[in-house]
Design a binder for these strands. Structure first.
Lengths: 201, 201
DNA sequence: ACCTGAACACCGTTCAAGT
DNA sequence: ACCTGAACACCGTTCAAGT
């Protein structure tokens, strides 16, 4: 009997998640068999099941990766003096780093999230985390007078996240490549939505 | 050899789509077997395949139903004199008629749409149709001075649809029942986004 | 044309057996 | 502990046969 090897565990898990993600993007969740993932990851079914207890568990791993990535971008929001500028920089960072693979994988994962109650709870927690973080930054900018107080900080945060999500979904539907094109109108929309002292015309 | 019976065809198709929708909402697309749909619709596999050529073809039928429902709501936008009022009435009609079943089914269907190229093309066309219809109404209201011209009519239409979609997705994630709660902030957000002469504070 | 149900190739998952 | 691959129950789809 050997002892648990945490390093190997992490490496293998990462390999499996990456291989599975590639398969899901190429063929979709439905049409990807465990055998496909095994081939892509270079291991047998038994080994794969040693690291992930089910196909759904692999999705859970991908969801957690997305949550971490979102939190990383949002965490940079608070240390800028100008909220709108910080938000725009975050959007540009997002537009610069997000790939078509990420977008398709996200859509792929989204349906599975609603389907499985455990995933749904985790996704809800991740969304609340993002909303609260954004709301805190907005509340601060409202207090300083930079942002309008028409919407509460929480309501505004939900609108911002909803708007960005809706834009990302559309970018995915209409070829992900035109995300850059949508950035400028999105910025203008966010300004109108949030900023105090609206641009006239 | 009998001749084709269009009435029967329509009835049976509707039965199958409804039964399949129920199954998808209850157990998800993955975990619904054709046998499940057959049981729910009260027919044998052979019969089901006589009306729909594949499981994906059933999804296509559901997508078409969603497109028609969206277009019905949007078609009422043009005959009102006040755009914002018409938009709000459309939103209330949406909030009043859409059920948790619709929302979950929509999410279920969305992933499948990205997966299958034929579905993706159709969904894109449906989205363009909605955007163009909305953009035409916005352009008119911009011309009359009711709406601001900061965003082009098309850009504004995309933002409106994105915002609503993002809200609907969140309502689905956080129990669909709280859609009503989100209506008021959504209206305020849309006003700030679109209307000329912003509310101060 | 419309319908049945057995049959086909394949799926996610398990498990006895190896190192 | 880590890994293999055969085996199990089940899946989407087809098709010969009936009316």
């Amino acid at each position: 009997m050997r002892t648990r090897d945490d390093d190997l565990n992490k490496t293998r898990s990462a390999t499996i998640l990456s291989a599975a993600g590639d398969c899901f993007v190429r063929n979709g969740f439905h049409s990807t068999s465990m055998k496909d993932i095994c081939s892509a990851a270079g291991m047998s079914p038994g080994t794969l099941y040693h690291y992930f207890r089910s196909k759904a568990d692999i999705i859970a791993g991908i969801v957690e990766g997305e949550r971490a990535a979102t939190q990383l971008i949002l965490s940079r929001l608070t240390d800028a003096p100008d909220f709108m500028q910080a938000l725009f920089m975050a959007l540009e960072a997002l537009a610069g780093s997000i790939t078509e693979r990420d977008l398709i994988l996200h859509a792929e994962v989204s349906a599975e999230v609603l389907r499985r109650p455990e995933l749904r709870v985790r996704a809800r927690a991740a969304d609340d985390e993002a909303r609260d973080w954004l709301a805190a930054a907005i509340a601060e900018a409202q207090a300083s007078g930079e942002l309008a107080r028409v919407l509460s900080a929480h309501e505004a945060a939900v609108c911002v996240l909803a708007l960005i999500d809706g834009m990302l979904w559309r970018a995915t539907l209409h070829e992900a490549s035109d995300l850059g094109e949508r950035l400028e109108p999105l910025k203008q929309a966010l300004t109108r939505l949030l900023a105090e002292g609206q641009v006239p015309r």
